[in-house]
Design a protein around this nucleic acid. Sequence first.
DNA 1: GTTAAGTCCATACC
DNA 2: ACAGGTATGGACTTAAC
Length: 816
Amino acid sequence: MEIEFIPIDYDYFDFNGGNYVRMIGRDGRGRRVCVIDSYEANFWLILEDGADASKIVKKVMKVEVTKASRTSKVLKCVIADKKYLGKDVKAIRVFVTNHKDAHEIASEIGDMKGIFKRREYDIPLITKYIKEKGASPLQCLHVKAERVTDNRLQVTEDMDCYIAEEIKPIGNRKQGIGNKEFVPKVLTYDIETSDVEIGKSEILMISLYGELGNKDEGIGNRSKDGEIFEKVLTWKKSEGAGDYVEFCEDEAEMLEKFVEYVNEYSPDILTGYFSDGFDLPYLKARADINGVKLAIGIDSKGPSFTRGRIPSGKFCGIVHVDMYRFVDAVFSQYLQSETLSLNEVAKELVGESKEDFDFAKLSNMKNSDWNDFFSYNVHDSRVAYKLFEKIWPDILEFTKIVKEPLFDVSRDRMSTHVENYILHNLDRFNEIAEKRPSYNEIRERKSMGKYEGAFVFEPVPGLYDDLVMFDFTSMYASVIISYNLSKSTLNEDGETFNEKAGFFPTMLGEVVETRKKYKKEYVANPSGMLKARSNAYKLLANAAYGYQGFFGARYYCREAAAATARLAKENILSAIDKIEKGGYKIIYSDTDSICLLQGEKSRKEVLGMLKKINDELPGIMELDLEDFYPRGLFVLKRGGVGGAKKKYALIDENGKVKIRGFETVRRDWCALTRDLQSKILTDILKDGNEKGALVKFKEVVKKLKGREVEISDLMIRTQLRQALSDYVSEGPHVAAAKKMEARGIPVSVGMLVEYYIGEGSGKRIGDRVYLVGDKVKYDVDYYLKNQVLPAVENIFEVFGIDVSAVADGEVQKKLF
DNA sequence: GTTAAGTCCATACC
DNA sequence: ACAGGTATGGACTTAAC
């Protein structure tokens, strides 16, 4: 029979000595089905020039590896003309009985005469499978298949299962089946505990939230119209709780109910925020203690955790997504949020905050407190659900573009995305994949010093009128493409690059072109999907430069990365030169942007000059008009020598202020300082002088001196980036963290430590660090000399005002 | 004991 | 370990007197 099929999750198993891939997904009617397909494990032998291929094949056919209970053999060999790093090679594709033994068979073959390299034994089975069969995730496939019920194939009873005979993508980038979108059935969850250490305390409650879509909306999430599923499971008792609260006898029963509800809801995706690092391991630990099995997923086995910096929790057939991982790896650099907490990220992306709940109350909870806590708990899952809806188009597009399983794509870092994109597109270039670097190679790469990077122009401090900002579009990517910079195009001299287009720059060119196309489509006809798609291609293009310089990359090429930076620099310097020769004054430039004064020239003249520069730029490089700014401010460095780079403030024609680098945008300065500086910059840019700003400054000094400032405005937040014992030098935030630890407040790497500086006699600032709630008075002198003044001094200096004298004046007046 | 230079550290820009 | 280099500036630590 023939079915339409959207694969969502993949795993594999051995049967009759061969490898099989099992895909869980949805069929054309939106039902969950399972498709099993055989996989012929294989890798490549690249031959030396002039080697006798058939002779080698004969020898290779005899290779056999016995390991534990399994004997792996070579099944067949196919001789082919391939490319490896752009060069034509003769190669043998070696098919083996089991993918797990490919590496060992390759090693066994190792020393054989005539073999230049062994490749692709280190690519994960699922990746090779998807690549070779075109069974891309979350895209509709046309599958010729036979229905099976053979339990030895690990078929589950309550799901239709097929053995694939032929798999074909239905292509042309359709979202789902027919004209319908694939809408996953999603369930979010969140737990509350009294101790944050994994498994240490009981889980007090678990919340679940899901929305069942209208059946006309698309494939997947079908049910009655707009039904909401929300639940809090708890073993705590209270009266008058909302209907969504379900009381259990004890923790064990609560965990069992959780499993039941998840299985009954049967989501495609089970998701939480930081659930890899907290909720799921906690559930597992408590389930173990209580002797409960977290039998979630189609195999009814508990979650498995893959190793890594953060363990990744996996169920079979239900994709567990930790939204934090995706936000952290892909989104964070484009967010304004100062932390990646659910609260901040959800506020920025979906405009929803968490509910307030005072965790200090936990030790002494009244009936109504519990009801508040339940409400808080379910709200968290609700907010998480909204967040998922918001970022799903991005996760979906990344998955479809990178062609790796959703589980991995939602966790991988940008370098991995770039690499997977390459691996899944190599066939079009007839390329055999490069191997992963060995431990020693990584060490060697890391030991290389830095290469020279971007150019930054030292600005002359001042308040300027009528500035123009140019920037290069995707500069580094356009340099890589225009100059053909990559591992496979590096000449033997190790410096210059081949003229003949390499697959890496070509692929990157396609990424940039595709991005342009979808951006255009998006502008003409905006949709969340087009925005996400265009954005995914953009992020991929932007990460390509970093990828070539990243020590862990298969296609690492330091020379290409260094050349990219150097040629970018040459081009921006040459553009600056041309702008200056055109009679303009350059105010600033950083990496790919140039800021100049419009002077007496008209906008038309500016654009004409821009066009002339563009006509002379190499390849696809392009200098764009970013914007016109009526006013801009640049300041001196703190030491007073030279203009400060990476610090400026601009105001656009709509009165919108853009602040870069200043303390205003730094989270490790107190709110008093940041707010004041922000107001001062805004006033100066709006008024064109410092008078109003000076009044605001004086007011703050007076308030500070008069002890009228709230402690919350004086709290300083600094991230603890290593273990307390690893610090060589004990800064104030380390001292604060030690103080917390001494008081029994949990301290962990990565947390934001909050403190203020109080009065005292200690020599170091760290000796006068206090925590929220402490009764010690704030240190007026510190906040004046180390916070407020440093942040505004060099701004007023532009107007020739010595602001510390003004501050002293305020003190004098008060004294008299 | 004080001060200047050097180092560590966090955070930002692009 | 999980894209790169450039840059600022606070606070601590150490060397020199």
